[in-house]
């Protein structure tokens, strides 16, 4: 019983971080109906960003994540203007392939520079023991950081002018434009926010898991699952979706081999697409 409880709590902590990554994916989908296939490599860049800044300047990883977040925002805006803007109204295949080409470029350059060998950030916050449960300090902090990020995103979307603009563009781009919202810039900002969230998630993961430049792929697929679980386009739903996935990953291995986890995850993913494509928490918030 204690073992299950420990797995669940561990899963929950991880779930918050998954949630942040998925929020990035789902925010972009919600605002501009684009599935960002460069999501995974950007998560990996977040990991490497923290790794490099930590290695070069011995900066606290959490400070490094702040820098990575800003870089992630800038990178996303750049990707939007270079690769996405021109095909934003084209059929889905175009945006899928445009973002996938960004994926290839990042992975191609990344492998050339960093090779595919595993890295890890040599950083520890010890561990926290609560009765029978022992939790890794970095995971606890990551979960709190993830909650903070989710809260900040919520405040940004619902309490600021640019947040309102984003929601207006997500709701109806043409109408928003008629009301004087600079829709193209808002789309660029939204894409940037989406990649920023991906980079932050990558940075947080890097504090407790080893990784390679290809590591983002697995988290990209998880983000798809979470995004669909929570309702594509619904960032808050994505956070809950992340928690559900985290708990599932914690619980499943207690009664079947770990290798069955992805089978369950992806079957659930396809099932939800078929039965409830708007997700468990509704498609757009």
């Amino acid at each position: 019983m204690d073992f299950i409880l420990a797995s669940v709590i561990d899963g929950l902590l991880l779930g918050f971080v998954y949630g942040v990554a998925a929020m990035g994916l789902t925010l972009i989908w919600g605002v501009m109906n684009v599935i960002n296939l460069s999501h995974g490599p950007i998560i990996a860049l977040g990991m490497f960003g923290v790794y490099l800044i930590f290695g070069a300047f011995s900066l606290n990883p959490y400070v490094a994540i702040l820098i990575v977040a800003v870089l992630g925002l800038v990178l996303g805006v750049a990707i939007y203007y270079v690769a996405v803007q021109r095909v934003i109204n084209a059929p889905h295949l175009s945006t899928l392939l445009a973002t996938f080409s960004v994926n290839m470029i990042i992975i191609g350059l990344g492998t050339a520079i960093f090779s595919a060998s595993p890295r890890n950030v040599e950083f520890s916050l010890g561990s926290l023991t609560l009765g029978p449960i022992t939790l890794l300090g970095t995971r606890v902090v990551a979960a709190f950081a993830a909650m903070l990020v989710a809260g900040a995103l919520y405040l940004f979307l619902y309490r600021t002018r640019y947040g309102r603009y984003i929601r207006a563009v997500a709701n109806n781009r043409d109408a928003a434009e008629l009301m004087g919202v600079p829709s193209n810039r808002i789309l660029a900002l939204s894409f940037g926010l989406g990649t920023m969230l991906a980079a932050i998630a990558g940075g947080l993961i890097a504090t407790f898991f080893p990784f390679t430049i290809l590591a983002g792929g697995a988290y990209e697929l998880k983000s798809f699952v979470i995004g669909v679980l929570g309702g594509l386009g619904n960032p808050i739903g994505a956070l809950f979706g992340g928690l559900i996935l985290g708990v599932l990953e914690g619980i499943i291995p207690t009664f079947m081999p770990t290798t069955w986890v992805p089978v369950v995850e992806f079957l659930l993913f396809v099932l939800i697409l078929l039965v409830r494509p708007q997700g468990l928490f509704g498609a757009k918030s």
Binding site: N33, H92, T259, P262, V263, F266, L273
Partner: peptide, 20 residues
Amino acid sequence: AYFALATIGINEAMRAFINN
């Protein structure tokens, strides 16, 4: 895009299943 995502999911589920 929903169809595209579903096909990705099916491929991944199949791979994970064959793995087991």
